[in-house]
Simulated scan of single mutants.
Amino acid sequence: MSIETVRVDLGTRSYDVRIGQGLLDRAGAEIVALAGKRRVAIVTDTTVAAAHLPRLIASLNTAGLQAEALALPAGEATKSWDRLGQAVEWLIAQRIERKDLVIALGGGVIGDLAGFASAILRRGVRFVQIPTTLLAQVDSSVGGKTGINSPQGKNLIGAFHQPSLVLADIDVLGTLAPRDFRAGYGEVAKYGLLGDEGFFEWLETAGPVLATDPEALQRAVRHSVAMKAGIVQRDETEQGERALLNLGHTFGHALESATGYSDRLLHGEGVAIGCTLAFELSARLGLCSQEAPSRVAAHFAAMGMPARIADIPGDLPGDEALIALMGQDKKVMDGKLRFILARGIGQSFVTDDVDPAALRAVLAASRRG
């Protein structure tokens, strides 16, 4: 398979997303033209560093680039003020300037944190995303959203800062644990659910073989990235259409917060449950057929993913507490919760006109499984 390119067209801040096999080993050749002083700083985590950092550094060295690396602890807890400060101070100590380059090597946590560090260091330095998880390749590495979590909610602190290049090597996804791969799939399915029923229909057949079929996997990543690029080009700073990319996230982020951003619930798993809840709420409000949420839940279950609140291990706060956590969502406007709902698969829209009783009923039913 050849390497494919999706262009994110944002005028002077446009960039390419390169998708295919072997990109990690040719990263130096892909990046060298961007490196002003022929030196780069890599931010990664300890797990990714053990699996992929030596190959990246070798590739950079072959292209004549000097590289230093900071490996932070793996996990969602790294998206914090403390780790952000550590990364920024390290970059300053490395004398990274505006014309230098930061590389984010890792999943969504590292991409978000390193991107935010790049946004605020010297009021903005360039960075390259090398996403190593399916979730990061199809979602968080594209579009320029960067940030960290607050104890009061997910991604409440951050900035829009577009990368200069994204290298999505699908080969590295083979090192993911099965659960991590499936969690990333939650974001892949989201694209079909929000705006492309044909893609979702294809996933109903192809989804179970993505982990073992590189051609199907590359198609899924490319199509997801192309959908996101189109939306970002039309609404970069989420004034309207881009909010659709948060299908399932109002519920999912609240559930992540309720589980302490722990491995009880991975982000993509929260998105899968959130998408199912969004369709169940849509059906309860008479917006879509009763069959649509059943189809969504059945597909996630067939992929071995959670689809209901009852699928989350351990105790959870009550429904009122979950609704309060939803109130910290970034999409809240004038104190009103905004939801991405659907008139059918591939037909999502944003609304704040949701009957509280219907919301409570959907949460209670999902708890019962």
Rank of each mutant, 00 (worst) to 15 (best):
E30N: 08
G28Q: 10
S59A: 13
G230N: 14
E187H: 12
I231C: 08
I3S: 11
V138Y: 06
T212R: 12
V142P: 09
W90I: 02
Q347W: 04
E236M: 11
S150G: 10
L24K: 11
A159M: 05
I148W: 14
L316Q: 01
S348I: 02
R222E: 15
L72S: 02
M227I: 14
G268W: 09
R338A: 10
L255Q: 04
G106V: 02
D196Y: 03
G248L: 04
F349L: 01
G158E: 01
H249K: 05
Q290C: 14
G327H: 09
D263G: 03
I31C: 01
F279W: 07
A77R: 13
R26A: 04
L210Y: 01
G147H: 00
A357F: 13
Q328V: 14
D213H: 10
L193P: 11
M1L: 15
P131A: 12
A71H: 05
I31L: 05
S289P: 04
L173P: 00
Q328F: 12
L322W: 03
F199L: 08
D82M: 15
R368M: 15
R295E: 08
V354D: 07
A216C: 06
Y185A: 08
D9S: 14
A41G: 12
F279R: 08
G174P: 04
T250E: 06
G174V: 06
G186W: 07
E97G: 06
A35I: 10
A168Q: 03
V43I: 14
G268E: 05
A258R: 00
Q129Y: 09
T133Y: 09
G107D: 00
G143F: 05
Q137K: 05
G174E: 09
I231E: 06
P73M: 05
R234D: 15
I42K: 00
V125W: 00
L72K: 08
T205V: 14
G286I: 07
R122D: 02
D82W: 15
G147M: 11
A168E: 01
V88Q: 03
T62F: 13
L337G: 02
K79W: 07
I273C: 08
H267M: 13
T205C: 14
V350D: 10
A77E: 15
L60T: 01
A71D: 03
R13Q: 15
I340V: 15
I103E: 05
G207R: 03
G184T: 14
G304M: 00
A278C: 06
E30Y: 13
I157Y: 03
H249G: 12
P208M: 13
G268D: 13
I3D: 07
Y191R: 12
V188L: 09
L70A: 07
V232T: 05
A364S: 12
A159Y: 07
E76I: 04
L113T: 04
G268I: 05
W90L: 05
K37W: 06
D329H: 01
T47H: 11
L210W: 08
M326S: 07
Q152S: 12
A307T: 03
V40S: 04
T44S: 11
Q162K: 01
L285G: 02
I110F: 13
